[in-house]
Design a protein around this nucleic acid. Structure first.
Lengths: 147, 147
DNA sequence: TAAAATACGATTATTTTAATCGTATATTTA
DNA sequence: TAAATATACGATTAAAATAATCGTATTTTA
C-alpha cells in the first residue's frame, strides 16, 4: 500500500479551503464543521502547519488560520514534512543499517532509491495551486463550502 | 505516509533473487532463510505471485519457484496488483462516493487523481529488470546470496 | 510411498493511524 | 478589564491496517 494518510488528506482539503478564502482567517472549529473533520485532530494538524510556516495562526475572538504564503509556494513536500510524515518507499533507502534487520541480505535499496527520487520530485513539484486552479471543474457542494 | 508495505518489500527482494537464478526453482523455505523473511508470510506472498502468473510454482521434492516471465516484463504495478495492494493516494480518487463519508464536502479528488496517475506511471514503468541491471554496484553480501 | 514441496483458511500479535480528552495559554473586543 | 473565543499541546484511548503464525490439506517426484 502506498497512500496518503488521513492527516495529509485533511491537511490538503483544509489548505485548499484556506486558499479559497485567503483574506479572512477561519477558525479550526469552523473548518472542522465545514469540512467534516474531527475538531481535535484537525486542530493539531493546523498547529503543525503553523509551526512550519505554512499557515499563520491568529488568536482571539476573531481569530483563525490563514495561508502564510502564496499557494504556488506551498509544495506538497512541504506539507508532508510539516506533518512529520515519512514519504520514503521503504525504510532502508536512507542508507541506515539500523533501519532494517535484513539490511545485509537485501539488495533492493539502490534501485528503489531511484524510484523514490522520482516520486519525491512529483510530490515536490505539486503545489497548493494545483488544488485550486481547476477548482470549478470539480463536483462541488457550493452550499457547504460557502463560496 | 506513502510507502511500500513489508509484503511488497519482501516480494521485490524475492523476485530479485529469483531473477538472479532464473534456471533453477528455489523453494520458499530456502528463500525465507537466505533473505531472512518469515517463512509462512513469504510462502503466502509467493502463492499470490504464482496465481497472478508472475512466478511459476513447482511441486515435489525438487520443487520451488521460478520467474514466469522475463524481468523486463514484470512491472512493479503487476506485483502490487498481484499482492492485492492498493496504490491509490487517497480512497476517493476512484470516484466512488462510498469511499469516503466526506465525499461531498471535499474537493481534492480531481487534482489528486492527476498526481496519482503520474505516480502510477512511474510504478508501471519500473520493472524487475531495474532491480537487476546495476546489481553489482550495490553493497552485496555474496556469501549469503550464494552467487 | 515417503519426503519435500506448495496451498490456503483462520487466528493472533504488533504496529500504525486516527480520534479523543483535559488543561493551559493567548488575544480581542464589548 | 473581564469574558468569550481562539490556539497549544501532552497524554490517553480506540480503531484499523499490517505482519506474523498456526494447522491442515494437497501435490509431485525421487
Amino acid at each position: 500500500m502506498i497512500r496518503f494518510s488521513k492527516k495529509i488528506e485533511y491537511a490538503l482539503g483544509t489548505l485548499q479551503f484556506l486558499g479559497l478564502h485567503q483574506n479572512t482567517p477561519i477558525s479550526a472549529r469552523e473548518l472542522s464543521i465545514k469540512l467534516k473533520i474531527p475538531y481535535e485532530f484537525l486542530s493539531k494538524t493546523l498547529q503543525q502547519l503553523a509551526r512550519s510556516g505554512i499557515v499563520i495562526a491568529n488568536y482571539g475572538i476573531k481569530g483563525g488560520y490563514h495561508l502564510a504564503k502564496k499557494p504556488s509556494e506551498i509544495h506538497f513536500s512541504d506539507i508532508i514534512d510539516a506533518l512529520d510524515e515519512n514519504a520514503s518507499v521503504v525504510d532502508c533507502v536512507d542508507g541506515l543499517e539500523a533501519s532494517c534487520e535484513r539490511y545485509n541480505y537485501c539488495n533492493i535499496k539502490n534501485p528503489l532509491l531511484e524510484l523514490q527520487s522520482k516520486i519525491f520530485e512529483l510530490i515536490r513539484s505539486t503545489t497548493l495551486e494545483d488544488l485550486l486552479k481547476d477548482f470549478k471543474s470539480t463536483k462541488f457542494d457550493v452550499a457547504n463550502l460557502d463560496c
